[in-house]
Amino acid sequence: MEQMVDDSLEDAFQHRIDAEVKIEPRDWMPERYRASLVRQIAQHAHSEIIGMQPEGNWITRAPSLRRKAILLAKVQDEAGHGLYLYSAAETLGVDREALVDMLQTGRQKYSSIFNYPTLSWADVGSIGWLVDGAAITNQLALTHTSYGPYARAMVKICREESFHQRQGFELLWHLSHGTEAQHEMAQESVNRWWWPSLMMFGPPDHSSPNSEQSMRWGIKRVSNDELRRRFVDMTVPQARALGVLLPDPELRWNESTGHHDFGPINWDEFHRVVGGDGPCNAERLTRRRRAHEEGEWVREAARSWATRHVPARIEAA
């Protein structure tokens, strides 16, 4: 009997999804839908938070005050994105503190791209142009995701992301049209970030086990390979305009498919970095944990104050 009720609920649920009706927090949903959303949104939120580190690494060294202001605002935005996403995850009945704990104990992942180091100033440009560019490709698709709060968070985030990609592009443009040393800095950085950016879309469709169910539930709207293809097609002409080369000898326009062909991605490297053996995995988590631990006495003080004081009310209007 239980089972039958669940089945009919699940049918109704799938029906809603197929009709493009958004699922909202208090709607009935299959437990697996909820769990898989929590996992995906949390992982996305963690990526925004950890993503502050590689770029934050250059805030105090930005080579002009204008660039410093832009970078600071950008990294601040990423903290905001993390918060929008945790907020969306919390509508599913999980608590942010618990999610952050999962991140900090390594039980939930974040995007592997942030396990690569920022070794030169040009990396700030490459991250904005390529990494945010790839993120936008993915996030634009997610504005149509089936869960309302997640879709709304994506809309807000996408609005802010376009500034991120543009500032990265502009930064690199100045480098590649600057002195010889600057041009080299730009090219060297693009060489390092190109392949990891392609990996951001995840494993190829044929070996991506969770994708199919995610697509059926409308959580994922576009497949990994299709997103990757969109990104490459978008980026190639931008690279030409920038005057930098993308480090792939097999990259070329394919008249018959109407898309670019590109060389094989090193999935061994991808799995190694996802598995924890990337250049910065340990550093990123250590730093995150330290900030959290060092903040504990502050949060404790705020909690303690709030139990003994109620700030004077102002009337809502």
């Binding site: 918060l83 929008y84 907020s87 969306a88 919390e90 608590d95 942010r96 503190e97 952050v100 968070a153 807000k156 949060r299 705020a302 909690r303 104050w305 709030a306 004081h309 109620v310 700030p311």
Partner: peptide, 28 residues
């Protein structure tokens, strides 16, 4: 074990209603 959750509503322009924009955590 973290700070309490608050739902946030913003009126973006005079003449508009407050609209729910998301949530955040704070002690008070």
């Amino acid at each position: 074990s973290g700070l309490p959750l608050w739902e946030i509503f913003v009126r973006s322009r005079r003449g508009m209603s407050h609209i729910h924009v998301g949530s955040l955590h704070a002690a008070d």
